[in-house]
């Protein structure tokens, strides 16, 4: 991804050699002679459809969003101005929104991955009756959108909620006072409803690769189940846990539908839609989208580079 000028041999002859090498590669793709060239052409052909979709549906629209966010005019991309970014950095409101996003996504990520570890452990290590059923049940909510997750929380903790009314009957208090669905804790639980199944899915992939012999060896040497987990299992699943933290955190930041139903905490994604809904401030919305993109890109890239995280399901 480095540019030629950033490269140590970025001298004139170095650049020429590179251009020449580039031309040779292009030639070999257009008119391949060796099997290696033909293989290169195949890779290009296989990646081309995805690249086309990425360019048309991803890169170009994002570029346009970036352009309007630094435009000098409100509805046309002309000139250059950092006004929208100045608003984001100076207005304390946006700082609070950013803070809300981070603590909500961060807290729910820790809670979800924290619960996903014992869940996965029970599913993969214990010989539970009806294990397949449990796997299906834990995976089912993955296909539910955020709005449905929010409804599930209303069913449990809303004004009409089952748990709310149960507590109301038991304590004799009003259910309206007890309902927590439309509150920050309710939102927290709603986020977890969406994120636990995803975290579990990622961790199950990691657990499948564990070396069972080492665990058995540890147990035969007298290690307790906890010691075995702590010293043998955990080091093996650590890359998977870090990967799950990164991906689940991304999921948490991206949640939006849940917030449309339970509008109690304003986070980054919700604020983007509000910028459009009230006054159609595409410049600020664009700046927020740009910041979001670079933030997630940066922490994902850094996370993958400087930890042993594994990405994938």
């Amino acid at each position: 991804m480095g540019t030629p000028s950033g490269h140590p041999d970025g001298t004139f002859s170095g650049v020429r050699a590179r251009i020449k090498a580039g031309v040779t590669i292009v030639e070999s793709i257009v008119d391949p002679l060796t099997e290696r060239d033909r293989e290169r052409r195949r890779v290009v052909a296989l990646c081309a459809p995805f690249a086309a979709l990425l360019a048309i549906a991803g890169a170009y629209p994002l570029w346009e969003v970036f352009r309007i966010s630094v435009s000098a005019e409100q509805y046309r991309s002309v000139g250059f101005s950092l006004q929208a970014y100045r608003t984001l950095t100076t207005d304390p409101y946006y700082r609070r929104v950013a803070f809300n996003s981070l603590w909500l996504a961060g807290g729910t990520t820790l809670a979800s991955v924290g619960l996903a570890v014992p869940i996965t452990h029970a599913l993969e290590k214990y010989d539970l009756p009806g294990e397949d059923v449990f796997v299906t049940l834990v995976s089912f909510p993955i296909s539910l959108p955020g709005i449905v997750a929010a409804f599930m929380i209303l069913v449990l903790f809303g004004n009409n909620g089952v748990l709310t009314n149960l507590v109301a009957v038991l304590t004799g208090r009003e259910s309206i006072e007890l309902a927590i669905a439309v509150s920050a804790p309710g939102l927290f639980v709603a986020f977890c409803y969406s994120m636990i199944p995803r975290a579990t899915l990622i961790l199950r992939g990691t657990y499948a690769e564990i070396d069972h012999a080492a665990e058995e060896a540890a147990q035969s040497l007298g290690a307790t189940p906890w010691q075995t987990f702590r010293h043998v299992t955990l080091p093996q699943i650590r890359p998977g846990i870090i990967g799950a933290l990164i991906l689940t955190f991304r999921t948490g930041l991206a949640i939006f539908g849940t917030l449309i139903v339970i509008q109690t905490v304003v986070v980054w994604t919700l604020q983007i839609s509000r910028e459009l809904a009230t006054g159609y401030d595409i410049q600020v919305a664009g700046a927020m989208a740009t910041v979001y993109f670079f933030f997630t890109f940066a922490f994902t890239a850094l996370g993958l580079r400087y930890t042993s995280a594994e990405v994938g399901l």
Binding site: L54, G58, P61, V65, F256, T269, I272, A285, A289, G312
Partner: peptide, 22 residues
């Protein structure tokens, strides 16, 4: 190529804003 193809590029809200603009 692997990372780009398995990681969602941006969430739906942001892609939506980008589509409206582009």
């Amino acid at each position: 190529v692997n990372a780009i193809s398995v990681l969602p590029l941006v969430p739906g809200v942001i892609l939506g804003v980008a589509f409206l603009r582009a």
